[in-house]
Design a binder for these strands. Structure first.
Length: 347
DNA sequence: AAGTTCTTATTAC
DNA sequence: CTAACGGTAATAAGAACTT
């Protein structure tokens, strides 16, 4: 979906149209500590981007419309759209007489999903399917999206990225090389700021240049990720579209309004985090094998402590006790004010 | 020496 | 003038530890 959260807000509040809209933390007159979740394209013209500190966004455009994240609403809309896409996909697969191949539908996040449309008989066929899906989503939800189509997940994703917003881009196998070569290395999924910086320090800026690096060199520099990169820059990606991912961990974390050393404040908030997680574990009938407590101190220095149980346990009272012990250790061995606390349960 | 656990780093959305 | 920086989840790597 295009600029999902902000686009939903525009739909719900037509008076926002034509104005820069930023969804995220409260800027508090430039003093806020959160980040931008999503913003519309007008806000992007001012240099605002997802993940940027909200204080920075406020500096760039103090007159933008700053909105809090209304997650319940976005979740509901996401559900509607995923259902549209899923049903659409299912009936297309039936029509094409796919024998179980094409029903795969993978939800990546609230606003992203993969459809395995390998039942299509041609790329034109695939493109038409994309057009129809775009139309259906817009007719039913009044929201635009961008669809990328390619021989594998990586290419499809990158095609969509380049076609945003309200776009549709098809990359046929014969076009993959010409599509990839001129792109920046950071356009490749899996190359983030750190990996990108390391490569840039070698004078590698474009995917075409990245192709010059031998597999061994990439593996030496980045391990398994390096091998993935080697394949991806060559348009190779065998990842399947997988319908259901198994949950491996659930966690919560919280940044305080201001750094604090007050144990009352810290433990009261930790209690809330624990209770929240306990509820989720119980309702989903999960068990807990490992707990990890995270503490971020003043200066953004982040540490974690974890404990693994002999066997996964349902005894959340025990889990709670251990979690509190770990947090206490942090406070005893580090005297700096605390910025963030978090807790994660590994299943 | 091998298997686990702990901790940190990186990425994505 | 520069830095400013959420929350959730996955995966990988290497160190530290048990067995």
């Amino acid at each position: 979906m295009d600029y999902f959260f902000a686009q939903i807000e525009e739909r719900e509040n037509p008076q926002f149209r034509g104005k820069p809209v930023v969804v995220g933390a409260d800027p508090k007159g430039g003093k806020g500590r959160g980040v931008v979740s999503t913003c519309n394209y007008l806000a992007r013209k001012y240099g605002i981007k997802s993940g940027m500190p909200i204080s920075r966004a406020y500096q760039l455009c103090p007159n933008a419309i700053f909105l809090p994240v209304n997650m319940e609403l976005y979740q509901k809309v996401s559900e509607n759209i995923m259902n549209i896409a899923k049903n659409f996909h299912y009936f297309r697969a039936l029509k094409h007489e796919s024998n179980g191949w094409g029903e795969k539908f993978e939800i990546v996040s609230l606003d992203e999903a993969y459809l395995d449309i390998s039942f299509c008989k041609s790329w034109e066929d695939a493109e038409n399917l994309g057009k129809k899906l775009k139309r259906e989503i817009f007719e039913k939800e009044r929201l635009t999206c961008t669809i990328g189509i390619g021989p594998n997940k990586t290419i499809a994703k990158m095609a969509a990225e380049k076609a945003k917003p309200n776009g549709l881009k098809v990359i046929k196998p014969s076009e993959v090389e010409n599509f990839l070569d001129p792109l920046d290395i950071e356009d490749l999924p899996g190359i983030g700021p750190k990996t990108g910086e390391k490569l840039r320090s070698l004078g590698i800026n474009k995917i075409k240049e990245l192709k010059m690096l031998p597999k061994e060199k990439l593996e030496e520099m980045f391990g398994k990720v390096g091998i993935k990169i080697y394949q991806r820059v060559r348009g190779i990606d065998e990842e399947e579209v997988v319908s259901e991912e198994i949950v491996k961990s659930i966690g919560r974390e919280l940044t305080f309004e201001r750094d604090t050393r007050d144990p009352e404040v810290i433990f009261a908030n930790f209690e809330e985090i624990i209770n929240d997680l306990k509820k989720e574990i119980e309702s989903k009938k999960l068990v807990c094998k490992t707990i990890t407590v995270v503490c971020r101190f003043s200066g953004f220095e982040t540490h974690s402590k974890s404990k693994t149980f002999k066997t996964a346990t349902k005894d959340l009272t025990l889990v709670e006790k251990e979690a509190k012990k770990l947090l206490l250790k942090f406070l005893l061995e580090n005297l700096k004010p605390v910025r963030l606390i978090g807790l994660r349960f590994r299943i």
